[in-house]
Amino acid sequence: MSATIHASLTSDKINIQGAYDFVADDAHGAIDVFVGTVRNLHEGQNVLGITYDAHEGLAKNVFTQICLEAQSRWQGTKIYLSHYNGELDIGGISIIIAVSSAHRANSFEACRYIIEEIKKRAPVWKQEHYENGRSEWLPGHSLNEANSE
């Protein structure tokens, strides 16, 4: 039986086709793909790029856990998740989530669940680099809150 979850942290360029191919299934009539990219503007500042930082071991554990939760809620889904770690220029792909299911609702909902949970729970950080030469680690969600839930 082939794997139904792929969850990884990578410093290689994220491959959209690879994600699509992983979740493609003859019994599934829907594939939803979310691609996160680096944008050139943040709160009025021109952004040149982002450096991602991650706790590799914990991040992989959290990614897998979130995918298992999604698969439990939307049964029968196949899920591909890959998050980038390292430096990206504008337009670079920071994350891809692909979910397939028999019908479209499960794919949409599972995909949304995964990205929202990653933003709250995955030990990943980003440092934006601005046109004026400054760099700043962005604020985020405290894991104190996630850990007490």
Binding site: A54, L58, I118, K119, P123, V124, W125, A146
Partner: peptide, 24 residues
């Protein structure tokens, strides 16, 4: 795993301090 405030350490350890997260 993330450790809770009342967890106790009795031996040498390698830990990480994790600030608020903002992946994606």
């Amino acid at each position: 795993e993330i450790l809770r405030d009342d967890d106790i350490l009795n031996s040498d350890a390698s830990l990480s301090i994790l600030p608020p997260v903002c992946g994606g």
